[in-house]
Amino acid sequence: MYLKELTDISGVSGYEKKVREFIMEKIKEKVENIKEDNLGNLIAFKKGRERKKLMISAHMDEVGFMVSNIEEDGKISVIPLGSVDLRAVIGKKVIIGEREIPGIIGYKAIHLQRDDTLTPPSINDIKIDIGAQKKSEVEGRIKIGDFVAFAPNSMIHKEWFSGKGLDDRGGCSLLIDLINKDLNLAYDTYFVFSVQEELGLKGARISAERIMPDFAYVIETTTSGDNPEFSQDRRSTELGKGPVITPAHSGYVNDERLFNFAIKVARENNIPFQIKRRTVGGTDARAIALSSGAPSLVISIPSRYIHTPLCVMNLSDYENTLRLFSILLEKEVE
């Protein structure tokens, strides 16, 4: 499990290099073939018992920002990369660019807000503060186009893990574990660590078109809804209740056969699981189905507060998702 290492690396959409390098180090001895494609997707291959192709993917990128301008007063304006929860970013620490310059996300203090405490801040008013008074102090250290990522902040408390970027480093960690487990794979398996999911499923589309798999699994870290203000029926998923098997989400009904197969395998092996109760949000499964025509299924680890600087995961869900995938990859799809 590499949750701590992976979530502490910066890798916002389009800037996945460090994540890719870390993963490459961890798996290169364990696979038969590994390559990086033109977009930056990392594709690792292991032979299976049968000559059918299975693709299993997780995305490397996390939501964050990009520097769009350096203002006269030394404040840095940004644009979001992916759908960042702007209500949760004020006063949080970030790191900027290759040189990892620290900064704070600034906004007017609560004392100076009136009715606008009820509305999320606008990206136009959010500025990054790196402790500079004028533009010239910033220039040379930070340039337009530098990435802005939430600062590393992982913590473990008993069976709870928290950190930034769990969506989808949780999936990346699980994919590394699956590679390193030396499973008796049923099919020729392509392990894909994809880029730019948060910007519209970009990387997975290209990898799927190249691989042309017969089936595909996507490992995601998905939103939970186990907040006290939600009644049971409106909770998208809940922590501690096992992997989330998705029947349908925005833009794609997940493959019926794979869906039923995953449920059957979970039941037979006494692995707790939950069916996702919401259909909002899309995943790489749509991109894979649309580009390669491969039937696809998403199975996710539930997580609280995704798309904020601190996501929370229950490690029992991680373990159970790993157990489920370990069996799925060894079995022929029924």
Binding site: A248, G251, Y252, V253, R286, A289, L290, S291, S292, G293
Partner: peptide, 15 residues
């Protein structure tokens, strides 16, 4: 298949 989900089946069917 799945036209109502966003033209899913037709995206590859004629390839």
């Amino acid at each position: 298949v799945q036209e109502e989900m966003g033209l899913v089946g037709a995206s590859t069917v004629a390839f």
